[in-house]
C-alpha cells in the first residue's frame, strides 16, 4: 500500500500538468490539421462529383477506370495509400519538372497532404454521390429535359439540389473520417497536430498528458463538426419528411 502511495506521489511530481510552452505549437498543429482536412475534403468533393457523373453517364472505358480507382482505394489501407501516393506523386512531379528543365522541388507540407488525402477521399465521395444521384427520381431530370434545359442546367438546377439531402449523411461521415485521417500524415512526417504532439510528448516525456490533450482537441473538432452537420442537414432536408431517428 505504502509503495503504491509513494509511486503515485512520484508520479504526480513527474507529471506537471502544464503545456510547458507547447500550447502555441499544438494550436498551430490543430490549425494545419483543419486546413489539410478542409482542403482534402473540398478536393474529395470535386473528384467525387466528377467521378459519380463519370460512373453514371460516362463512356465505358471511363467507367472501368473509375471502378478500378474506387475499388483499389477502398481496399488498401489508408496508411499504405498515403505512402504510395506521396512518394509516387513527388517522384512524378519532380521528373516532370526535370524533363522541362526546372529544378526538383522539395515537396512537403500542406498542399501535398491535401492532394494525397483528397485523392483517397475522392474514391469514397464518388460512391456516396453516385448513390445519392441515383436516389433522385428520374422523372425530375426528365422534367428538366422536357422544359428544354441543357445537360449542365439540369445538373445545376435539378440533380445537384435534389441529391444533396441523400448525400449529406454520407459526406458528413467522410468529413469526420478525413479530420481523423490527417493524423496518418504524421507517419510520413507532415507537420500537423499528431506529429506536433509526438514532438511535445517526446521532448517533455509527458506522453500520457500530451496525447490526452491532442485527443481532446480532435474530439472538440468532431463535436463542433457534428453540431454544424446537424444544422446543415436540417436546412437541406427542409420540406422533406423528417428522418426517423432511431
Amino acid at each position: 500500500m505504502h509503495d503504491i502511495l509513494l509511486a503515485s506521489f512520484t508520479l504526480a511530481d513527474s507529471l506537471p500538468f502544464s503545456l510547458q510552452g507547447w500550447g502555441d505549437n499544438l494550436l498551430a498543429g490543430l490549425g494545419k490539421t483543419v486546413t489539410i482536412a478542409l482542403g482534402a475534403f473540398a478536393l474529395g468533393l470535386l473528384i467525387g462529383l466528377l467521378g459519380a457523373l463519370g460512373k453514371l453517364y460516362g463512356p465505358s472505358p471511363l467507367v472501368w477506370f473509375l471502378e478500378f480507382y474506387t475499388t483499389i482505394i477502398r481496399a488498401v489501407p489508408e496508411l499504405v495509400l498515403i505512402l504510395l501516393l506521396y512518394y509516387a506523386g513527388t517522384d512524378l512531379l519532380n521528373r516532370t519538372l526535370e524533363s522541362f528543365g526546372y529544378r526538383p522541388l522539395d515537396i512537403s507540407g500542406i498542399s501535398a497532404g491535401i492532394a494525397v488525402l483528397g485523392i483517397v477521399m475522392g474514391a469514397y465521395a464518388t460512391e456516396v454521390m453516385r448513390a445519392a444521384i441515383k436516389a433522385v427520381p428520374p422523372g425530375q431530370m426528365e422534367a428538366g429535359k422536357a422544359y428544354g434545359m441543357s445537360a449542365f442546367q439540369i445538373l445545376r438546377r435539378v440533380t445537384l439540389p435534389a441529391m444533396l439531402p441523400f448525400a449529406i449523411p454520407g459526406l458528413a461521415n467522410l468529413w469526420l473520417i478525413v479530420t481523423k485521417d490527417t493524423a496518418l500524415l504524421a507517419v510520413v512526417g507532415f507537420e500537423e497536430l499528431a506529429s506536433v504532439t509526438r514532438q511535445a510528448a517526446g521532448t517533455t516525456r509527458n506522453y500520457l498528458f500530451f496525447f490526452c490533450v491532442a485527443a481532446v482537441m480532435y474530439l472538440c473538432l468532431t463535436l463542433v463538426s457534428n453540431m454544424i452537420i446537424r444544422r446543415l442537414e436540417a436546412y437541406y432536408r427542409r420540406g422533406q419528411k423528417p428522418l426517423e431517428h432511431s
Binding site: R205, L208, F211, C212, Y218
Partner: peptide, 20 residues
C-alpha cells in the same frame, strides 16, 4: 470519444502514455 479521436492518437496514448 473513441469515434471522435484518431485511432493513431489512441494507439500512441495507450502505448507511449500508459507504457511510460
Amino acid at each position: 470519444s473513441i469515434r471522435g479521436t484518431p485511432l493513431l492518437i489512441q494507439l500512441w496514448l495507450i502505448y507511449y502514455g500508459l507504457g511510460s
